[in-house]
Design a protein around this nucleic acid. Sequence first.
DNA 1: TCTTGTGAAGTTGTTCACAGCG
DNA 2: CGCTGTGAACAACTTCACAAGA
Lengths: 230, 230
Amino acid sequence: MTPPSPRPRDRGIPEATVARLPVYLRALQALDERGIPTVSSEHLAETTGVNSAKLRKDLSHLGSYGTRGVGYDVEYLIYQISRELGLTQDWSVAIVGVGNLGRALANYGGFGTRGFRIAALLDADESVLGDRVAGLAVGHIDTLADVVREENVSIGVIATPAAAAQDVCDRFVEAGVTSVLNFAPVVLNVPPGVDVRKVDLSIELQILAFHEQRKADGHAGPELIGGDPA
Amino acid sequence: MTPPSPRPRDRGIPEATVARLPVYLRALQALDERGIPTVSSEHLAETTGVNSAKLRKDLSHLGSYGTRGVGYDVEYLIYQISRELGLTQDWSVAIVGVGNLGRALANYGGFGTRGFRIAALLDADESVLGDRVAGLAVGHIDTLADVVREENVSIGVIATPAAAAQDVCDRFVEAGVTSVLNFAPVVLNVPPGVDVRKVDLSIELQILAFHEQRKADGHAGPELIGGDPA
DNA sequence: TCTTGTGAAGTTGTTCACAGCG
DNA sequence: CGCTGTGAACAACTTCACAAGA
């Protein structure tokens, strides 16, 4: 199936690049807030901890938005990256599970702002129903399908305990949601066409432990993992 | 300098593999809880959403722990992966910032268990000092250096607002901590030799938005990102 | 002059396909 | 026979180094 088409996709931005665009965006917004009008690839690369050639190549996938001898216009680049990521339109998000994590997400800077609108907070636990979190009243999980339809929810966020996650995911899929962000420590089963991204708060910790162990073992020189020696 | 030692016991496990080991570990623990004694690469791969050849190659970096014609012994593999990740010893973790996110982390399954011990919860806000979270009393940020020394903290977790993150990071580094897990939406500056991993809860959301936009634009067939078509 | 944008080279990661072992 | 472990082919990603433009 799917023989390699002779003319692939012109808009094919590498996945690795897509994963870095939000990082650049964040740094650019910080520069913009400090009133800095332009930035060179060298400087932006240093700020974000990547190689400057990689940064230029990443940006070149969006188009030629730099000025040789000068650098990139901060505001214009913010706009272009936002547009590419689809953040110039507002995406409605529903968060299920209003424990500490759900509350943290609802209040997370950049989660409720810049391109995302929290349309609903839902939970199954009677004791939190009606609580006001980030300006929203917590609703019952059974209203999920209605909320998705009425609020035009396109992204579902699962912040429930592991045991409830698959059920919530099924409800999202049933309601027509095709993008799910899962914080519960389980692997979700979804039909083809549904995107699931998983954030596991403890996996990062385990990766750090691995490197920490390396340092403790007989190991010649310390090595940077994400940092930049320069 | 550091000429490669003649026989360095090639312990160089690819970074991509290290990042997947926690995922396999999680799936294996789930199998173990259900009393399943052995698993094939095919089955474990399906559960975790990777290609089975990749899984076998990943595991082959740890050693030859499978049995041809049978598969892998679940318990034994759990032990081997745990050992490789350094989870057979307990790592002391200090969490700074006891807002919703800090509380969520302190209560996160697998964060306080399986290889990690939360040694301290610290905050600068007077109003939360002394609160009991996950069985621990919240201490003052100024005791950080003492706590790191007394509790032998090797990993620092930053769950503060963005504005406080660099200061907290500096305190960790000053106190001798060389691994930092940062949840604040800023890029931290650290000296060489210190590992920083960053988790940005909104970056994943932005990546989802990108793919959601792709689906909305004229786009021939839906594509799986993390899923497995089979 | 300074910095972008990009071919080309180099590195890392993935998948195939099958030999070899239980 | 079934499944692992792995060389070899392939694909993706990163970095180098420099031509070309402002």
